[in-house]
Nucleic acid binder design. Structure first.
Lengths: 241, 241
DNA sequence: GTATGTTTCGAACGATCGTTCGAATTTGAA
DNA sequence: TTCAAATTCGAACGATCGTTCGAAACATAC
């Protein structure tokens, strides 16, 4: 990384004019950043690649965001914010619908997972790009994204862990937190498309099942897997054996 | 990436003298590469950082390995090879011990997971470093490591999927492959230390539970979680509901 | 000793990186 | 129109990147 960037987060110079021509290229930059960061990661993506994909100049990007890190931050915020709102809205709706305590485990898991596969507002293929961006959050250098992770996902994670605690009263909160981590791992691994490729003798040309994530059946399988795992993970002794 | 590197894998010029002073710095370079690649990722780690950590020169690294990609490849091979041998040895031992068919699911999962947490031959803290390197395999730019992934993990994955099929005869191989992907996701996420940090009001200063992975109890919880998930994932209708 | 081949290193090359700067261009109000 | 602010751009800066090259340092056999 050339030129110190002064360590602190560059304090994103926010241009005053919110709409107009400026805001338009601002969003074109965010779109391109979403795409390029997703494909090449933070270190792998260059400012020039992003701005070129956006049809803008490097200086324009730095004018709007202040630094590469701040651009990543803005990109993530725009992606993840609406997603988390959906998750919380779903969970809230579930809880009010069932005035009575017991909330079925699978429905909580679904509230957490389904918003990921659903297309979200901004654009049609935004989902596909978001998947990779979110996955990158868990694979880029810790010093870059550690704080962002806590900021973006901390509150919603706490909210869901609490809901899970209510649904699994026989487990400690610590156990559930651990199980929640496992579940996030499943989600991240699937949406990032990092499959293992089982290397079955014949059929080389699979590889293409990330597209199948949008399939309802795969979502159902993830929900079933995660819910069973949460129920089981070292409970008082074998939750669902 | 400056200077083309000629696209093909640089064909690692293997020095003829296998032992002697040469082989020693060769291994010091691999140790350092393990550490630095783990900490900063492939793109984030510089050749100079690696060689400096190894107390060698950049030219020495290129003399022994030929290119940065080839160095990563050699590093992964040295890490993952012994690990996979352990996994397969464990699975083999299990199968001969139980001449009768039914192999308990948990023991298969354990055969896959325990070698990761165990220290392996080369050095004491090699495990800690390996964890991150293996995790990087699932987080670095696809074009760099896609082939390596299949080469390194493909056969052992196929072997384990087959064993799982025998232990879960009521499921299709496709279902089990998917569940196996989920399980790899759990493992990768945990060993890479990308926790979500639940952001509970008080206690800011946790974060340090990656060290707890070596705890036997966490391993047990992962095994329980994964086994239950595999049993459940959209079976003939709810495996462990 | 010389001769041969292996190994290491410092220096340099060309390329690309993130960022900055000053001059254009555009926008919106006076 | 005129002026000031907002916005974009091209060019350049300094740093760092992966890689290459030629000369030293080292080992081993004659």
């Amino acid at each position: 990384m050339p030129q110190r960037a002064d360590q602190r987060l560059a304090l994103a110079r926010i241009p005053p004019n919110e709409r107009g021509r400026g805001a338009e290229t601002r969003e074109r930059l965010l779109d391109a950043a979403e795409r390029v960061f997703a494909e090449r990661g933070f270190e792998g993506a260059s400012m020039r690649a992003v701005t070129q994909a956006a049809g803008a100049s490097v200086s324009a990007a730095n004018y709007h965001f202040g630094s590469k890190q701040a651009l990543l931050r803005a990109t993530l915020l725009r992606c993840v914010g609406p997603l988390n709102e959906r998750r919380l809205a779903r969970l809230d709706a579930l809880e009010v619908a069932a005035g009575g305590r017991p909330l079925e485990l699978e429905t909580i898991v679904e509230a957490f997972l389904r918003p990921v596969v659903e297309a979200h507002a901004s654009s049609a293929d935004a989902t596909a790009r978001f998947r990779q961006v979110a996955a990158r959050l868990y694979s880029d250098p810790p010093d870059v994204v550690a704080a962002m992770k806590r900021e973006l996902f901390g509150p919603v994670a706490a909210r869901f862990v609490t809901a899970l605690c209510a649904a699994l009263p026989e487990k400690t909160r610590e156990q559930i937190e651990l199980g929640f981590q496992f579940s996030v791992g499943v989600m991240v691994h699937v949406i990032s498309g990092h499959l293992v490729t089982v290397a079955d003798p014949e059929d080389e040309a699979r590889e293409g099942w990330t597209s199948r994530l949008s399939d309802e059946s795969v979502l159902q399988q993830i929900i079933a897997y995660v819910a069973a795992g949460l129920r089981a993970a070292a409970g008082p002794r074998g939750g669902a054996r």
